[in-house]
Structure formats: C-alpha cells, structure tokens
Write a protein that binds this DNA or RNA. Sequence first.
DNA 1: CCTGATAGTGATAATGATTATCATTTGCAT
DNA 2: ATGCAAATGATAATCATTATCACTATCAGG
Lengths: 131, 131
Amino acid sequence: MQRLSYQRQAILNLINTSNHHWDAEEISRTLSDQGESVGIATVYRGLAALESAGLIESIQLDNKKRYERANKAHHDHLICESCGSIKEFIHPEIEQLQQNICTDNQFSMNGHQLLIFGTCNTCRQNKGVSL
Amino acid sequence: MQRLSYQRQAILNLINTSNHHWDAEEISRTLSDQGESVGIATVYRGLAALESAGLIESIQLDNKKRYERANKAHHDHLICESCGSIKEFIHPEIEQLQQNICTDNQFSMNGHQLLIFGTCNTCRQNKGVSL
DNA sequence: CCTGATAGTGATAATGATTATCATTTGCAT
DNA sequence: ATGCAAATGATAATCATTATCACTATCAGG
C-alpha cells in the first residue's frame, strides 16, 4: 500500500472507532449512509491493503470475511449462533499450548483462529433454556 | 434425512474410507471418475444431509467447506499455507480450557474450531531449495 | 508549472462456491 | 398397483469476492 487514500482512511477510521466485526457490504453501506460513499470494489481492495499493512485484522466467519481493529491485543472469538453476536476472549495458556503443539509437530505457526460456537447468555435466557 | 440413497452412500463411503478433507467439487469429480457420477447439486445436498445427521463433519477453510469422517475422535487442524496439507491434532487440555472460557462467559458451547496456520516441516525444508 | 509514471478508484463483468427451482425419478406405505 | 414425499439432476440464481478497464489523483523530475 503506497498511499492511504481518502477512501482507505474512511474505511480505517470506521473500523478503528468501533468494536464491530465488519464485512465489506456493511462498510460500503455505512460509509454511503455517512455521505462518503466508496465503491464496493474499492472497499474490498482497501480492506485487503489495510490488512496486509497490519492496520486491521480479519476472521473468516462462515462464508464471509469480517474485519476488526488491529490496535488491540490478540484475542479469539465466541460466536453466538442465535443472534450472531461476537464476543472476544483471551487465554494466554491456550496460546502457549498451541505453540507447544506446533513445536511437537515441527510446524512453524503464522497465526491461528479459535472460534467457539454456541449460544450467548442473552439468547439462552430468551429461549428459556438453562445452562 | 429420510433415506440414505445410493448417491449419499457413495459420498459417505468415499469420505469414510479416506483421511482426506473433501470439498464438494472433489467429491463430484472423484465419484465421476469411479463411474458413479453424482450431480453436483446432489453432492451439496448430500453433504449437508450427512453432516446434519452426524455422519460426517466439516470445517470452513478459506472460502470453501471441507468434509471429513465423523467416526474418529474430535480433533483440530494444522493447515500448511504453502502446500495446503492438513494435519490433525488433539489436545485435551485446550478442550478443557475452552470449556472454562464458556463457563466464565455464561456461554453454552455447541462446538468449536481451532485452526493453526503456518508452514509444515516438509515445506519449510523445501524452501531452502526453491520457491 | 508541465509531464509522465503509476497507485488508486469505480462501474461493471466475471468467477467460484453454494443454493433454489422444477420437472422427473425413486422408494416406501397403504 | 397407487399415491406421495424424498431425492435427483440439470440449470438458473445468488452471494461474496476478484478481475478488467477506463479514468483520476498523486508525486517525482525536468
């Protein structure tokens, strides 16, 4: 990425000032609502560029990619299959164990993704189901 | 799934007699090569039906779903970003820690997916030669 | 200042994986 | 045998994403 264009600044700003996990279409629509419309192709290119520059991060959820701020500590995700909400967690011990697994398997880790699927507290209560 | 049709048996058999992580197109092509051609739509429907019946399992990799046998113990995956190979591992301690995280967050877990990305031993050694 | 090179944009076509449609076939159960 | 729901297969449609291409913006050098 040679230039942080106006459009890419808008994308980066949107992501950085929120805790949301954005997909490309949401970003395009939100920017459009704010009167700073950015073409959908530009959004995709911008997201890819910003990610490879380390300015944002992504997770692959189901069949689409979602982007979030990179300026926070590494974490993994709890995903509610009922309402789609995403909660973050960190667990240093799991991180360390993952590293051990890689060592055991002579595997050099570039990154990892731990997704836990289930039902969040709110949804569980709405359904009247107990833990 | 009311009936385990001839086509679904073929799909299930293919997956169960291998350790491969199959995508729909691979299954369609392989069955076709074996002279038991199955329409691609039927492959998709069969995979979904077999999975919801618990007969096979899937992981979402990049932008496509891959299916594998369900008749083996739970495990997670090491994915080589260089050659695409998938190695399995199990780590009971991580499993337990995940459960703890869910309890701490009042989250009821349905399942999880731990993917570790990196470079396998073979590819790391080959990088000295070429690529 | 010009000018040329090139990164970036935006509209849109194309792609790849997956799902929906619909006419036809299959496998039970009466 | 008959009826009927499930399943199939060809194909259209959809959805997320990438490629194309003409155009614009930015920057470095003359």
